[in-house]
């Protein structure tokens, strides 16, 4: 009775990618090593938010060269690149790496 755990066509869950991509000052993705199964709209969304963050930092006179966002399961490192950005996505394998403050 307990052996009922396989699904014929399981719905897909989107995994988290590791890789790097670059975006131009308008947030358009220029180059990417992010796996193709990861939705491109997510990649573009990350790029746009990072570009906005750098632009707004300049506007309040706190220009940034690098931005690091620690999530529980993912780390995003973004380096400013002539108005655009080089963005690294890495998985957080060890939850204790960044203490919850």
């Amino acid at each position: 009775m307990l052996n009922f755990f396989s699904k014929n066509e399981p719905p897909k869950l989107i995994g988290l990618p590791e890789g790097t991509f670059t975006v131009d000052p308008e947030g358009r993705v220029l180059t990417s090593t992010i796996p193709q199964w990861f939705p491109s709209e997510h990649v573009e969304d990350i790029g746009r938010r990072v570009i906005n963050a750098f632009r707004q930092a300049r506007e309040v006179h706190l220009p940034l060269n690098e931005l690091v966002i620690h999530y529980a399961a993912l780390k995003i490192i973004a380096r400013e690149l002539r108005g655009g950005a080089l963005i690294f996505l890495t998985l957080k394998q060890d939850e204790t790496e960044i203490p919850k403050l």
Partner: peptide
């Protein structure tokens, strides 16, 4: 978001 850091 556990922490957000910026370096400038």
């Amino acid at each position: 978001t556990q922490q957000l850091q910026g370096i400038g």
